[in-house]
Amino acid sequence: MSVLTEKINAIIKPENLVYSKSPLLNDDSMHYCPGCSHGVVHRLIAEVIDEMGIQEETIGVSPVGCAVFAYNYIDIDWQEAAHGRAPAVATGIKRVMPEKYVFSYQGDGDLAAIGTAETFHAVNRGENIVMIFINNAIYGMTGGQMAPTTLVGQITSTTPHGRNVDLNGYPLKITELLAQLPGAAFVTRQSVQTPAAVRKTKKAIRKAFEIQAQKKGTAFVEVVSTCSSGWKLSPVASNKWMEENMFPQYPLGDLKDTGRADASLYKVKG
């Protein structure tokens, strides 16, 4: 055995462990493409649930889209919702079990196209749920079609000449719109392309779950993400493309952190 191998083996000991896979992530290989942001966000959710010790009290709602199989990976109870309906399903679960933690996990097509009504009204009611929104500006599962958040000029399989506003309208900044709703408690936009960004996103997800416990209203976490397969770029090039093109349109940071609005502001006079 070389000196180097001996040195490495001396380090790889349980007492020196600083990071290992969350116990809430099971051994199923994730079906996502190499470099997919979903895997990172799944891990962060699993870590937050584990660290808060709420595995037995949390119910996840998975969408239709690439994350449909989220239920295969995180070891909690799950419901798989119809396309776009995750906020309604989460509402149903939370309303009859208000003591539980409920979160929905949706992509841009699910949350911002087919499920726009469910998304808006769940947030507007100030449902005490966490909503995780993966925005990669494309439909991944169906093979790279235009999403509501697809950028102008961005090439997808249904905008092969680039998204044209005359034909397809504008990228939908749904998170900005949701931040306007009085039921929203916490609205933030994060990313997971660097270690620092990952750590910030984890903090945001943790905060979102804590807001749910405090019954302050809806906690909404957008994660600006990549789709290497849909964008036809390598994972590393995807991150660069995201930083250059997505971030100017979808700037990172907290959009709202006030808790839901005081009802008296909206009340009739008599």
């Binding site: 419901q79 309906r85 309604a88 399903v89 149903g92 009859v96 009504a117 009204h121």
Partner: peptide, 23 residues
């Protein structure tokens, strides 16, 4: 619980969620 939903689509999926909780 009684909730007026934003649509029949939302109502039935709320039923789905709550029914999934054994209620």
């Amino acid at each position: 619980v009684v909730l007026q939903a934003e649509s029949e689509i939302a109502s039935i999926h709320m039923v789905y969620g709550a029914a999934g909780a054994g209620k």
